[in-house]
């Protein structure tokens, strides 16, 4: 029997004074990377705020593993454009941030956090304060913190948006490595078409406000992906296609 999607969003709508999100439907399969692109200010972040449960939708259903979830706080690993690390905590303690909120035993979580740091090459920075890290490193730590909190489904809101191009592409490879090893299901937003193609299995294109799914494109590039793929004819073709949709 085929397993259903990990996350299903159906007819999600939200309006404040005006309609912000209008009947968005999308899904994410287990182990899939899905990106959402759209013009800036189209409501991508608001969509994530609704999915994560910070905002309540006016209408629509969100299902995780086939079950409808109304109280969604704590059910996603949510990461923002800014690292939002706590400057008063060392890297290790930052990664363990979630343990108290989830009511877990500290020592157990510490072992898991150290393991995560070791596995993904940040172990030597365990005792650093965030202020002593570069922008790219901070974002790596933030990514691991997100995963340590909840790796069931990741919501990454323009996670690499504030990084320079070189750091960004190294972070892309870092994310893909983690994704492959841990078999994560990821949705992320971006306004960078190339980033969306490079990372994703599928790309959802949102319309201008009110946000609505304009199209969904499957990315048929083989994995594992390499930097060289960015210039392959197939990649360029996808890029053109998406460009025309925006």
């Amino acid at each position: 029997m085929k397993k259903g999607p990990k996350l299903i969003i159906k007819n999600l709508s939200l309006s404040f004074e005006e309609s912000i999100i209008r009947k968005i439907s999308l899904d994410v399969n287990e182990g899939e990377i899905v990106s959402i692109i759209g013009p800036s200010g189209c409501g991508k972040s608001t969509l994530f705020n609704v999915i994560s449960g910070i905002l309540k939708q006016d209408d629509g259903v969100i299902k995780i593993d086939g079950l409808e979830e109304k109280q969604r706080q704590g059910k996603f690993g949510y990461m923002f454009q800014e690292p939002l690390l706590f400057p008063w905590l060392k890297v290790l303690d930052n990664i363990m941030l979630g343990f108290e909120i989830k009511g877990l035993e500290k020592n157990q979580v510490k072992i898991e956090a150290l393991d995560l740091l070791k596995k993904f090459n940040l172990f030597e920075y365990s005792n650093f304060y965030p202020n002593n890290l570069s922008g790219g490193m901070k974002q790596k730590v933030a990514l691991l913190r997100t995963i340590a909190f909840n790796s069931n489904i990741l919501l990454l809101d323009e996670p690499f948006g504030s990084l320079d191009a070189i750091t960004r592409s190294s972070l892309h490879l870092y994310l893909l490595e983690i994704w492959k090893k841990l078999k994560l299901s990821i949705i992320f937003t971006t306004h960078d078409i190339r980033e969306a193609i490079f990372l994703s299995d599928r790309v959802y294109v949102l319309s201008k406000k009110p946000a609505n799914v304009a199209d969904c494109i499957k990315i048929n590039l083989p994995r594992p992906r390499k930097i060289a793929d960015l210039t392959s004819p197939k990649f360029v073709e996808m890029e053109k296609k998406l460009m025309s949709l925006l």
């Binding site: 705020n49 449960g53 910070i54 706080q73 704590g74 941030l97 979630g98 909120i101």
Partner: peptide, 8 residues
Amino acid sequence: RLLNSMGA
């Protein structure tokens, strides 16, 4: 917002 999303 981050802590809110975590359910703190």
